[in-house]
Design a protein around this nucleic acid. Structure first.
Lengths: 222, 222
DNA sequence: CCGGTCGTCAGACTGGGGGCTGATCTGCCC
DNA sequence: GGGCAGATCAGCCCCCAGTCTGACGACCGG
C-alpha cells in the first residue's frame, strides 16, 4: 500500500477544529491535508481546483451548510468522497446527508482511530455510518423495504389463485401476449387462454388490462 | 464497566467455525459463550430457554436459514440482539437480514476486533453494518427517500406526447376500455381510438396492455 | 393568409382476446 | 378404486381493439 497518500480536505467554520483535524490527519503517513475551507461555499469553490480524495465536512456552517455543499459536490461526480461530521446525532442531518450523496456520516465524538478508518474506508469505495445512527437508519430502511409478501396478501382476490395462475398473471403484468406467454411457459396458447379466463373470473376482472393493473397494485410486478 | 459479561450465542452449521468464534469470544474477559446451535431451528428452540444478549447468526444453514431464524427471534422481542454473518456480500442477504430485524450485518472476512466491537456495539443498543454493504444500503436508502420528480421524466418515450394523449394514457393505465374513456372525456370512441393509435406509435408499444405497463413504470398511475 | 399541429370524428377491415364447451392426464385424498 | 382439483389442449364463436384512410375545424407562427 505504498502508493500516493490520500488527499484530505477539511471544511469547518471553527479554526480550532480544523487545526485539530489537521494534526490528526497529518500524523498518518498515508494521509495528507491538501486544503481547508471555513464554509460550504468556499469549500465548493476550492474543491473545483484542488485534486482531493476525501472531504471532511461539518454540517453546521455559515453561508452554506455541509449538506448543501455535499449535494453540490455529489452532483459533479463521484469524487471527492464526502464524510459528513456533526456534533448532534439528529436523524434529519443523517438522512439529508445521505440523500445529498455523503459517503459517510459520523459524530464528532468519534474516536481518532474511527475517523481515520472512515477516511480510508470511503477512499476504498465503502461507506461508514456512526453506529448509533445506523440503528435508526436501519429501522427506517426496514420500514421502507418491500415485505416478502407485502400487499400481495392484502389483495384478497389473489388468494384463490393457483401457483400456475399466479405465474401467468405476472407475465400478463409484464405486457406479454398470449402467444408470448405460451412460448415462455412452453405450453399451448389454448392453455394460456384457459388460465387467463380463470384469472379473469377469480379476480373479477374484465380483460387482461385490468389484470395488469391488479398485478401492479399487488406488487407482483413493477 | 465491571458488570456482568455479555452472553453470546453461536449459530453456524460448521463445527470448525463455531469453535473459532468460541475461542475468539472466550478470549475476552467481558464476553461469555452461553450456547451453540447448528441450524436456525435448533437456535430458536435453545434461545427460548437460554438467557442471551447477542446471537452470532450464520446465513446459510440447513433446515432453517439465519434470516428466518432472525425473523422469529425478532418477533418475540428486542432481545437477544442478532448479528448476521455471511461469507457472501449479497444485497439480498443484507436487505433480508435487516428486514428480519438483525442488529448487525457483517461479512465473515471481518477482523476479530471488528467482530468483537460489533458484539459490544449491538449490546449497547447500536447497530453495525459492514462498510462494503453500507454503501449499497445508503444508495438504496437515498433512492427510497422522497424526491421531487423521480421517474416521471425518466421515460424519454413520454416526451413527445401531447397533453391530451397523456390524459388518455392515464385512463388506459387505470384499466378503462375505449368506451369508458370516451364517456369520461366526453368524446366519441373513434377519437379515443385515434389517440391510442398515436400513443402506441409514439411509445413504440404493441397494444394497450403495454401502455399500462409503461404508465406504471413512469409513475403516471399507481 | 397559409402551412403545421392538434383534437375531433366516421367507415371498413383484420386479428387477437376472451367466452363457452368438452376432453385427457396427472397427482392426491379417502 | 373412485372422486377431486389442477394443468393441459381443441374447436367454435363473438366482439373489442387497433389499423387505415380520409375528413373537418381551431389555433398559431411565419
Amino acid at each position: 500500500m505504498s502508493t500516493d497518500p490520500i488527499r484530505v480536505f477539511l471544511v469547518d467554520d471553527q479554526d480550532m477544529v480544523r487545526a485539530g483535524f489537521r494534526m490528526l490527519v497529518e500524523s498518518q503517513p498515508d494521509l495528507v491535508v491538501v486544503g481547508e475551507a471555513g464554509d460550504g461555499a468556499a469549500a465548493v469553490q476550492q474543491l473545483a481546483v484542488t485534486a482531493t480524495d476525501v472531504v471532511l465536512m461539518d454540517v453546521r456552517m455559515p453561508r452554506m451548510d455541509g449538506v448543501e455543499a455535499t449535494r453540490l459536490l455529489s452532483a459533479q461526480g463521484p469524487t471527492p468522497r464526502v464524510i459528513v461530521l456533526t456534533t448532534f446525532d439528529l436523524d434529519e442531518y443523517a438522512f439529508a446527508a445521505i440523500k445529498a450523496g455523503a459517503a459517510a456520516f459520523l459524530l464528532k465524538d468519534a474516536t481518532p482511530p474511527e475517523l481515520l478508518n472512515a477516511i480510508r474506508s470511503v477512499h476504498a469505495g465503502d461507506a461508514v455510518v456512526a453506529p448509533s445512527t445506523t440503528r435508526r437508519l436501519l429501522e427506517h430502511f426496514a420500514a421502507a423495504l418491500p415485505d416478502g409478501t407485502p400487499e400481495a396478501e392484502a389483495e384478497p382476490r389473489l388468494r384463490l389463485l393457483t401457483e400456475r395462475e399466479r405465474e401467468v398473471l405476472v407475465l400478463v403484468g409484464r405486457g406479454l401476449s398470449n402467444t408470448e406467454i405460451a412460448a415462455d411457459l412452453v405450453v399451448a396458447e389454448a392453455t394460456v387462454k384457459t388460465h387467463i379466463s380463470r384469472l379473469l373470473a377469480k379476480t373479477d376482472s374484465r380483460d387482461r388490462v385490468q389484470l395488469v393493473v391488479l398485478a401492479y397494485g399487488a406488487g407482483l410486478v413493477g
